[in-house]
Computed example of a mutant assay.
Amino acid sequence: MADKSSANAYWAANVRIILISLVIWFACSFGLGILLRPALSGIMVGGADFGFWMAQNGSIYVFIVLIFVYANRMGKIDKEHGVEE
């Protein structure tokens, strides 16, 4: 990265990916697992209602998927800004 505008663009892209990932994880863990749990009680997944399943297992699976998506997307952003390893 040669100039400050390129560094700012790289940082803005990084922060945008982080914020989107946090919003998705919050919606899955807190939203589906806690706030919407009573509304999701009729949907069964693996012997438990969907809200309980999201609180116990689903949010962890979403987090793992987000880790791989973040790594993949940051690899592309690194190449776009010339800072790949």
Score class of each variant (00 low, 15 high):
residue 54 M to D: 02
residue 30 F to D: 02
residue 13 A to V: 03
residue 39 A to W: 08
residue 14 N to I: 00
residue 75 G to I: 07
residue 85 E to D: 15
residue 82 G to L: 05
residue 15 V to H: 04
residue 21 S to L: 07
residue 57 N to H: 08
residue 74 M to H: 08
residue 54 M to A: 00
residue 6 S to E: 10
residue 18 I to A: 15
residue 53 W to M: 01
residue 7 A to W: 13
residue 77 I to W: 03
residue 80 E to Y: 09
residue 75 G to A: 06
residue 26 F to W: 15
residue 21 S to A: 15
residue 4 K to N: 10
residue 52 F to P: 00
residue 34 I to L: 10
residue 11 W to M: 14
residue 13 A to G: 06
residue 10 Y to H: 11
residue 85 E to H: 14
residue 20 I to C: 05
residue 18 I to Q: 12
residue 80 E to H: 13
residue 30 F to R: 07
residue 12 A to M: 11
residue 19 L to V: 14
residue 77 I to L: 11
residue 2 A to H: 11
residue 48 A to Y: 00
residue 11 W to P: 00
residue 16 R to E: 00
residue 70 Y to E: 12
residue 59 S to N: 09
residue 2 A to M: 11
residue 22 L to K: 11
residue 40 L to Y: 03
residue 70 Y to G: 07
residue 81 H to D: 06
residue 33 G to H: 05
residue 59 S to H: 07
residue 14 N to W: 09
residue 65 V to S: 10
residue 12 A to H: 12
residue 77 I to D: 02
residue 34 I to K: 11
residue 14 N to A: 10
residue 5 S to P: 02
residue 3 D to Q: 04
residue 3 D to T: 01
residue 41 S to T: 02
residue 62 V to N: 04
residue 70 Y to D: 07
residue 18 I to N: 14
residue 26 F to S: 13
residue 35 L to F: 09
residue 71 A to Q: 10
residue 18 I to Y: 11
residue 17 I to P: 03
residue 83 V to K: 13
residue 84 E to W: 15
residue 55 A to D: 06
residue 37 R to D: 04
residue 35 L to N: 05
residue 31 G to A: 06
residue 79 K to E: 13
residue 22 L to C: 14
residue 34 I to D: 11
residue 67 I to F: 15
residue 1 M to S: 06
residue 28 C to M: 08
residue 10 Y to S: 03
residue 64 I to L: 14
residue 14 N to D: 12
residue 28 C to L: 06
residue 20 I to P: 01
residue 51 G to H: 01
residue 58 G to L: 01
residue 39 A to N: 09
residue 33 G to N: 02
residue 36 L to Q: 03
residue 53 W to F: 01
residue 15 V to Y: 09
residue 12 A to C: 09
residue 63 F to K: 09
residue 80 E to M: 09
residue 84 E to I: 06
residue 4 K to P: 00
residue 55 A to S: 10
residue 50 F to L: 10
residue 7 A to L: 14
residue 19 L to T: 09
residue 60 I to Q: 12
residue 75 G to E: 08
residue 19 L to C: 14
residue 49 D to E: 01
residue 22 L to P: 01
residue 49 D to R: 01
residue 74 M to W: 01
residue 46 G to T: 04
residue 15 V to L: 14
residue 2 A to R: 11
residue 56 Q to G: 03
residue 52 F to E: 03
residue 49 D to P: 03
residue 34 I to Y: 10
